[in-house]
Design a protein around this nucleic acid. Structure first.
Lengths: 150, 150
DNA sequence: CTTCTATATTTGTCACTACAATTGTTGTAT
DNA sequence: ATACAACAATTGTAGTGACAAATATAGAAG
């Protein structure tokens, strides 16, 4: 359905406003699905994202600023996100011995297990979400989004 | 910059995951700019959006469910958004005389004035945000986003 | 060694989102 | 008329986001 119909706009929108509103609207549509998915596993989308970043470290620790620069949402509150993951034993936190300003964060075995369970679930959800676009269209979409930010 | 570089991904991403991450990332990029813009006028992006919906009513009142179905973010808490606008005298609220379950919300003269001030500001910001895409590309982007939600 | 600046993280506050539960009102079936 | 379901909005709560301010540590300049 076109964005005008979705938001019941009575007037035609300029292409640039239309694209902007569509981006926001589609992101919300996507977010709703992700929240529903992760809720079954008592995770938020950003918590899942942080776990994946930590797994990507392949055994090396990450400190807060490293995580933050790899997150989708740069402004989110990483300290408290890690607090949540800590209380669920999905990550561990230690102050860095060589520089006590920094902290070292690792994903735990429990965290890795959870990700392993989630891998096929999220793969499948992502396939469902993008099932209406061909691979060429998905690449085109990425390219346009890259370009808008440039 | 490509999304892989933005989030410092060390591995190539599948086109569908890449598009999904790019959508989220670009939306956050956009949101940051909007928040900065509206902050100068002591508004949130959703508050502005509600004011525009009310102006679109052209003098007719809107009730809460009407506003909600036109909002970009369907899940946001419209009652409290209206509370905020009320406390700034940008809207007025009355219980509907024919059906006391409903409420009638109008934009005030002060609200219309504020929108009038904001119109050139937001137009300009939207132009800036989309300045790297041609009109054809903007339309293409909208079409891809429509298609992904279908 | 002391002072100053930069770095890394934490804390506090306020606004917004998601969502369940509640309240008040209306319409309908018996 | 009464009971009950449907509807419209409000309230409560927990989580998250934005951002300023505070804390703690490290390194550099004098």
């Amino acid at each position: 359905m076109s964005i005008e119909n979705e938001i019941k706009s009575t007037v035609a929108l300029a292409p640039n406003l239309k694209a902007i509103l569509n981006l926001i609207y589609t992101n919300n549509w996507l977010k709703e699905q992700q929240i529903r998915l992760f809720k079954e596993y008592d995770l938020s989308a950003e918590q899942y994202n942080v776990l994946r970043i930590l797994r990507g470290q392949k055994g090396n620790p990450a400190n807060l600023s490293t995580i933050q620069e790899r997150m989708l949402n740069k402004m989110s509150n990483t300290t408290r996100l890690i607090d949540k993951l800590l209380s669920k034993d999905l990550v561990s936190r230690h102050t860095c011995p060589s520089n006590r300003r920094k902290i070292e964060i690792y994903i735990t075995a429990k965290g890795l297990d959870l990700l392993k369970t989630l891998d096929p679930v999220t793969d499948n959800a992502n396939k469902q979400i993008t099932k209406n676009l061909s691979e060429a269209e998905l690449t085109q979409l990425s390219n346009l989004l890259d370009k808008i930010r440039t």
